[in-house]
Nucleic acid binder design. Structure first.
Lengths: 364, 364
DNA sequence: TCCCGCTTCGGAAACGCTTCCGTAACACGG
DNA sequence: CCGTGTTACGGAAGCGTTTCCGAAGCGGGA
């Protein structure tokens, strides 16, 4: 019994439940019950066992535990990072991961990272991976929404939640930021500044975030009784360049907008540059609101008014949703939308008298 | 036997090795040997078993497997994310994680995220966590270097590698970017532009990256025979504000430098701002080189010459190192340093005649 | 006294896999 | 024909847990 420098452990060789039982003078069964908080063990025995287990540094083998309990207390994360080689980093996903991890830490679940490139290995690569490790649930992030392997996984009945990924099933749902409401807030902000000619630059409509933002734009425009003339819907691809060309197209219109809602900050920055290159002054001659609050948004001049997403909250919501599905508390799980927040900065200003006049004139 | 839409699996209920054995007309032992590529099974039997296993969608239970093999094919990641609540995001660590994950995917290891907040639970929280899950090794990232729990883990003899974290033990080492060489390259670049008065803004010396960059600066300055007068070593904290004030201090010197190597891009940006506010023109009146290549570096005007780190390569190197340690291929594991790369942009320019004159004059 | 119920505990069977050991079958040199 | 070696396979032990089932002990009501 050699005391180490690091606390009261008696030995550094792995100590198992049998050893604890021996030292406590009880059976393995009793040790298990005591340490798992089962009722049928006397208070005296329990505390004695707890003390001995603590002194021995006993930590139950999770694999053995999972094997017999048929529950691993682990959730998997399927996260496609192959984009890194093509498009570069994706800070969103990393932030969501952090949110996920932090929320998970409070629940006692552990997170296991799986590599979806294994999807090459067959249609049910995901469900096999989940089965192999006995995962209680799996979180999906940044993977192609219509991957056959994904459908197979959802179909397998294993609890799933998508992050910004519209999965839906009897035991599957998703959480995303509330893009519809966020886009609406942006438009309303512009309207509150007096703008009536509000155009938008879209993201690729195959992506849920992009189509939802369009939906939010359209809904609020309709609600406010605002017109959406031809050309006010510019298709972008979330990259800066597309924001630039879209803005050019917008400015070439017969009735150019006085304000633009760009469905992504990169595009918003591109749009700003196009406006500047066209000799306009941002916020004075043309107002721009973005979406996402990327780092660049607060750096660029003028700083970009945008809608931020709370990635930590999204991660936390995903954990809540997933645990509820796992515990069977939800009959038919519904998607949850985490509200965004409008950050008013300097890229959107009140409509000017000149613009108002122009608007009235052209309205005649 | 109901075929599903998703491939040739026969049933969706979990199929185990016993089932495969039954269908193949052999024992479980033989199935295991066949599927694990053991030599003592005939070619005919092996291919028959493989076919049946494939058709059944058999995937061995990893927990049971790990239990008997005493090897889990899993490595843990201890990553402290509590900083998020105080300092905001840390893109470096996220990028390293991606590198780690991608490299890991090629080796067959899986990654498990552990939450070091559990360190509150005792000195050997880490080693217990590793034991519990039978981790073959663990990667450490963004955790306090002198945490007792960390020392305990390293002392436990379990394979460890630190990411930008100087851990060292008989089965533990670390990988980081080569900060010494990177800093040296930066200084040499400045020297090549004709600069002789080169100051530096340091990071907190308790951090390895910071002290290594200082070491690199000092080594090359000495090598080049350049003087480092009092005041040329300014202490910063990696944040922008400290870069600003450090630059102010530098400019107030009797013999102000003509070039500054800032040990971090945030500080470099702060320094640039201070120089601009002092009426200087970057690259012309004063040259600045940063370190890290953060996103901002390419955005700011003039764009920042800096040293970039290849996070993906760091992750990959960590995986190589860790697997070597696990497989016992290394007697005494050595730290590995992955080279950075100097990105020449616009913030550093050739020394001007006026500066040369001033230098000569003051040299008299 | 007997019986019933409650509390507390131990024995042992799983969980799904790998691997040690034994053995049958066969070939081969002596 | 015997001994020996090689190949291909099965039986069963065991990895470290949990949990089912049964039983001992005890108190109390009839």
């Amino acid at each position: 019994m050699i005391p180490t420098r690091y606390g009261p452990r008696e030995q550094s060789v792995a100590v198992d439940i049998r050893e604890v039982a021996r030292r406590s003078g009880v059976s393995m069964a009793t040790v298990s019950r005591a340490l798992n908080g089962r009722p049928d063990v006397s208070a005296a025995t329990r505390s004695r066992i707890e003390e001995i287990a603590r002194r021995l540094g006993y930590a139950p083998n999770q694999q053995a535990r999972a094997l017999v309990r048929r529950r691993s207390d682990m959730v998997g994360l399927i996260w496609d990072t192959s984009y890194v080689e093509t498009k570069g980093r994706s800070p969103f996903l990393s932030d969501m991961l952090v949110g996920l991890k932090m929320a998970l830490a409070d629940t006692g679940y552990h997170l296991m990272l799986l590599s979806p490139q294994a999807a090459d290995h067959g249609v049910n690569a995901f469900v096999q991976a989940a089965m192999q490790h006995g995962l209680d649930g799996v979180v999906l992030m940044g993977v192609d929404a219509d991957l056959p392997a994904l459908a197979a996984l959802i179909n397998s009945g294993r609890p799933c939640v998508g992050l910004d990924l519209p999965v839906q099933g009897s035991r599957a749902s998703y959480v995303s930021s509330d893009n519809v409401a966020g886009a609406g807030t942006a438009v309303r902000h512009l309207h509150g500044l007096g703008h009536r000619r509000i155009a938008t630059i879209l993201g690729p409509q195959s992506m849920m975030a992009a189509s939802d933002r369009l939906a939010g734009y359209q809904a609020v425009m309709g609600e406010l009784g605002l017109d959406v003339p031809d050309g006010y819907l510019q298709e972008g691809d979330f990259f800066r360049e597309s924001g630039y060309t879209s803005m050019q197209a917008l400015l070439a219109l017969k009735k150019p907008p006085t304000a633009v809602f760009a469905a992504g900050d990169e595009m918003a920055v591109g749009a700003m540059q196009a406006a500047i290159d066209a000799g306009l002054e941002i916020a004075r001659d043309i107002s721009i609101v973005g979406y996402d609050d990327i780092e660049l948004a607060s750096i660029v001049r003028p700083s970009l008014t945008t809608v931020s997403q709370d990635y930590l909250a999204i991660g936390a919501a995903a954990v809540t949703l997933l645990t509820q599905i796992i515990d069977g508390e939800l009959d038919t799980p519904q998607p949850v939308h985490v509200p965004g927040q409008l950050l008013v900065r300097d890229s959107a200003g009140p409509v000017r008298a000149a613009q108002r006049r122009a608007r009235k004139a052209s309205a005649l």
